[in-house]
Design a protein around this nucleic acid. Structure first.
Lengths: 109, 109
DNA sequence: CAGCATCCTCTTTGATACTG
DNA sequence: CAGTATCAAAGAGGATGCTG
């Protein structure tokens, strides 16, 4: 007979950790966009994401930066210019997420 | 100079399709639990997921079943018994998602 | 252009009660 | 046990206006 399974089991998994970095409506899409087009500017991301608000995009980017998945490069000029790109850590994650893309292509209905 | 990038680009990707199947707060965790412990009963899932409500769990399971990632097997007895497990399609997706688990273990901080 | 601040909407999730 | 129905709450996300 199997042991009791409980929530603590999940929270210790690497899966739980990874999800904490990329969950939310937009983060994976942002990462995907960077993978395809980096470096990418704020406006370009906004257009790519459809109708995301400034606030939400900015918030997501900050979290991704804090988690060291993306890099923010600000050019001190007017008008401002900021470019986002993947860090090495971010790139290594995208190697895995890209498999989800392939799975989707092969298993679409 | 790069072409304009837009939202339509993303919606055509396999990535977008895959995300549509597994996005939400619980779906990936449910799939992960099934991968580890299948077959799993309703109550066991609920315990594993922490404090998910009946309604939310039931709703998520229905969607996963509709998308043919999981299989629902009901035993006609009282008290009722229902077991959930991965379909072949679900298993093939988990091969990929399991990589996220490995990435998380290796890149945890 | 790339944001921030404020306020507001609305989807997602939860709590409670009930059933075969 | 495995749900469903109803109602309420929370939190994510959106709209608008403003700034260096």
């Amino acid at each position: 007979m199997r042991d009791y399974i409980e929530n603590a089991d999940f929270e210790e998994t690497g899966f739980s950790y990874t999800l904490s970095l990329i969950s939310g409506k937009y983060k994976m899409i942002i990462l995907y966009c960077l993978m395809e087009y980096q470096p990418v500017r704020f406006n370009e991301l906004q257009r790519y994401l459809g109708k995301i608000s400034d606030k939400t995009l900015s918030q997501n980017l900050k979290e991704l930066e804090k988690d060291e998945l993306i890099h923010r490069e600000a050019y001190p000029q007017i008008p401002p210019k900021v470019e986002y790109s993947l860090t090495e850590r971010g790139k290594s994650l995208m190697v895995v997420l890209d498999q989800l893309c392939i799975w989707g292509t092969e298993n679409r209905k």
